[in-house]
Each structure stands twice: as C-alpha cells, then as structure tokens.
Computed example of a mutant assay.
Amino acid sequence: MNNTEKIRLQNDALRLGMVRNGLFHVTSGIADQGAGFVMRARQQVAAYNNFTLDNDPYGEHDFGAFELDGQKLFFKIDYYDLETRAGSPDPADPDVTCRVLTVMLASEY
C-alpha cells in the first residue's frame, strides 16, 4: 500500500470517528447553529463520498463540500505532530500524526 492509500484510509476512518489520533473541530459559525446542526454536520461528513478530481486531486479524501439546511459547508483534514504544535513529519504514519478535521461554513473559509 502506498502513502496516498494509507492517508486516504486514515482520513476516511477519521471522518467515521474511528481513528486513535484524531480531533473533530467546528468553527464558531457552525457551533452558533446549535447542537442539532453540529450533529447533522458531523453525520454528513461521515457519510460524504463525493470525492472527485476537482475537490480531491491527490486522492487523500481530505476535503469536501456539501449543503446542510440551505448552507454551504466545507470540511478539511490537516496533519499535525502528536502535540498539534507543528505539521506531521509523515501523514501516512498514525504513530506520529494527529489528524484534525475542521468543519466550517463556506463563508468562513
């Protein structure tokens, strides 16, 4: 398995809430919509499967866009070291990487 495949599998696992070194964040614009909206956004991120060459040119499943309650949302996955102080030295290696998934309103991007 190459590094892109490893990263993609780990990113998919993060979106489903099944990764050991991962965080799920929402921006203030998402949080301001209320707990129900946050829960539905998280469900949409987990179910998201509309990856194309336009939004996923590297095949890592690290970005997506969707609509919820008439609002455009984005999610993005970034790769940090385990202390989340710097970038990961190897995003394909879960032993040295903390994945951070952020959900935001498109207007906040």
Rank of each mutant, 00 (worst) to 15 (best):
D62K: 08
L82F: 14
Q44I: 00
H61K: 11
P91F: 11
M104S: 15
Y79S: 06
F75A: 07
D32G: 07
N50Q: 02
Y48F: 09
P91Q: 12
V100T: 04
Y79R: 06
T97A: 12
T97V: 11
D56H: 02
F63C: 04
V45R: 02
F63W: 10
R85S: 14
D32E: 06
V45S: 00
T97C: 10
D54K: 06
A92S: 15
R85W: 15
D62C: 05
T52N: 03
N49R: 01
S28R: 08
D62Q: 07
R99Y: 08
V26P: 02
D56L: 02
G70E: 05
K72F: 12
V45H: 00
V38C: 05
Y48G: 01
D95K: 13
F75D: 08
M104Q: 13
M104E: 11
G87Q: 14
K72P: 09
Q44S: 09
R40L: 07
F74Y: 15
A65N: 06
Y48L: 01
L82D: 14
T84S: 15
M39R: 08
G64N: 05
G70R: 06
T102G: 09
F74E: 15
E83Y: 13
V100N: 03
R99S: 02
G29L: 05
I77T: 11
T27S: 08
P91A: 12
A86R: 13
R99E: 03
A41L: 03
G64Y: 06
Y48Q: 00
D90A: 14
D69V: 06
R85N: 14
T84E: 15
I30V: 13
A65R: 12
L53N: 06
N55Y: 06
D78G: 14
V100A: 05
P91Y: 12
P94G: 10
Q33V: 04
A47H: 00
N50V: 00
D69F: 09
N49Y: 00
D62M: 04
R42V: 04
S88N: 13
V38E: 05
Q43H: 01
F37C: 00
F75M: 09
S28L: 09
D95T: 14
V45P: 00
D95S: 15
A46I: 01
Y58S: 06
Q33P: 02
L101N: 03
R40V: 02
P89H: 13
A65L: 08
I30A: 03
Y80Q: 11
N50I: 00
E83N: 15
A35W: 01
P89C: 12
E67P: 08
P91T: 11
A31E: 12
Y80H: 12
G36H: 00
R85V: 14
R40Q: 07
D81L: 09
P94R: 11
D69T: 09
N49T: 00
K76T: 11
V100H: 05
H61N: 09
V45M: 01
D69K: 06
E67M: 12
G59H: 07
S88G: 12
R42K: 09
F74N: 15
P94T: 10
